[in-house]
Design a protein around this nucleic acid. Structure first.
Length: 425
RNA sequence: GGAAAGGUGGCAGAGUGGUUGAAUGCGGCGGUCUCGAAAACCGUUGUUCGGCAUUGUCGAACCGGGGGUUCGAAUCCCCCCCUUUCCGCCA
């Protein structure tokens, strides 16, 4: 959520930014309602001031034994006017907050303006030593590898739950679990994150806090009886840990890393991109979340990307970093880097991580503030989060990049002490 | 699912219709004392919105949330949410 004062003072800038993000603008409606709201507010507050003053007088008169019939009758009509104006005001307020929720965050000035993913900028590419994009031998894709070694079972997943719910079997399950543990350990031991094991189901307030509601409500699994939602990412419970909190400046930055299963309905995407692991309704992810001071949030964003990269380098997975253009930025993000890992079978890059700075956009909505040491004033923190990383996409890259000419799969060296085996097949 | 208790400022905890934004304690901040620190003592101490003015002033709102009664509600009434404890069920 943006600051209404900022919108009021910079309407053209906000409109332009919304357009750059390919979002529909409600800025004009917001400005009209905001003006109405302030006018009504002034009127009703004037009446309330009068009411408060006279009520005090009534108390004094009663104590003195004077007759208050006349003054009380007059105040009754004032009270009625107040009630009427308050009703109108409530109406305006409701509409206004609703509209405000539909205005996206502004892209940071360093973000390139662009319409679509095609205009994202490759920042850097990292390849393991000796890596080649061309393969002399034919390579199997992760789907066929999974079937061949009986480590991934999509059919049985479909039987028990539906498509997009894979079953990990045997060494596949062990590898998945190892990967999660490895990444968590790495962030805790080398990057100074505190581990969080969050609930996978959250309430409506939490979904509003991180901005999934209203825009993405239909993309989430919803337990209607209890009005609880399955989390699409651990970002939701972890960021909401501090909803309505006032944090100590000396505790910033706060850095959390947590594993969760992630659930996404995301109806309407079929075909090649949804084969196997590429598009799932349930997948596993280690998420990093940071609460930081506004003045260094962009340094923290660079560090966040680095934290995810460290894992990929340790795993020796080829990857590249993209800076998303304005049109490809998510609703809440001010700036975002995607990390894509290489799939030799698909012959393309797959998104394995998204690292974003939300500035105060989420913090304002979730009301997460800190008290500044310098002047003791309250200020919204900046929140950031990034996948560190999603195992599904990573698994595609591991299986495909680590296959031998005979079709076996070598376990990445750093994972071997977690899996307890070195090869699959 | 059943029963009971409770939700008040950063925290603890008073307050059951009339200058109550709210006693008291802790914490925080400033000061006295001290070479310095601690202790002691004195003073101070919220947030949000709006108007004007630009770092101040005036007004409003805020005691879990929403509605109601009243000239006036933290205090009375109704609905909802949450927490804790006990019981039941259960991995």
């Amino acid at each position: 959520m943006l600051d209404i004062k900022f919108i009021r003072e910079n309407p053209e800038l906000v409109k332009q930014s919304v357009e750059n993000k390919n979002e529909k603008s409600t800025v004009d409606e917001v400005l009209v309602l905001d003006k109405q709201r302030r006018e009504n507010l002034q009127k009703v507050e004037e009446l309330k001031a009068k009411k408060n003053k006279v009520s005090g007088e009534v108390a004094r008169m009663k104590k003195a034994g004077e007759n208050t019939d006349e003054i009380v009758a007059e105040m009754k009509s004032v009270s009625d006017s107040i009630k009427e104006l308050d009703d109108q005001l409530r109406d305006i307020d409701e509409k206004l907050t609703n509209l405000l929720l539909w205005i996206p965050n502004l892209p940071h000035t360093s973000v390139p303006v662009g319409k679509s993913a095609a205009e994202n900028v490759v920042v850097r590419t990292w390849l393991p030593e000796g890596f080649k994009f061309e393969n002399e031998e034919p390579v199997l894709d992760h789907f066929d590898l999974g079937k061949k070694h009986n480590i991934l079972d999509f059919e049985r997943g479909a039987k028990i739950s539906g498509s997009g719910f894979p079953v990990y079997v045997g060494k596949g399950a062990t590898l998945e679990r190892s990967l999660i543990n490895y990444m968590l350990d790495f962030h805790i031991n080398h990057h100074d994150y505190t581990e969080i094991f969050p609930p996978f189901v959250v309430n409506r307030d939490s979904m509003k806090g991180t901005g999934q509601i209203p825009k993405m409500e239909d993309d989430m699994y919803h337990a209607t009886k209890d009005d609880l939602f399955l989390i699409p990412t651990a970002e939701v419970p972890i960021t909401n840990l501090h909803r309505n909190d006032i944090l100590d400046e000396k505790n910033l930055p706060i850095k959390y890393a947590g594993y969760s299963a992630c659930f996404r309905r995301e109806a309407g995407s079929y075909g090649k991109d949804s084969k196997g692991f590429l598009r799932l309704h349930q997948f596993n992810k280690v998420e990093m979340v940071k609460f930081v001071k506004p003045e260094n949030s962009y340094d923290e964003l660079e560090a966040l990307v680095k934290d995810a990269e460290d894992i990929l380098q340790a795993l020796q997975i080829p990857y590249r970093i993209l800076m998303l253009c304005s049109g490809d930025l998510s609703f809440s993000a001010a700036k975002c880097y995607d990390i894509e890992t290489w799939s030799p079978a698909e012959n393309k890059w797959l998104e394995a991580s998204s690292c974003s700075n939300f500035e105060s956009f989420q913090a304002r909505r979730a009301n997460i503030r800190f008290r500044k040491e310098s002047d003791k004033k309250l200020e919204f923190v900046h929140t950031l989060n990034g996948s560190g990383l999603a195992t599904s996409r990573l698994m595609v890259s591991i299986l495909e990049n680590y296959q031998t000419p005979e079709g076996k799969i070598i376990v990445p060296k750093v994972l071997q002490k977690y899996t307890g085996f070195e090869i699959i097949g």
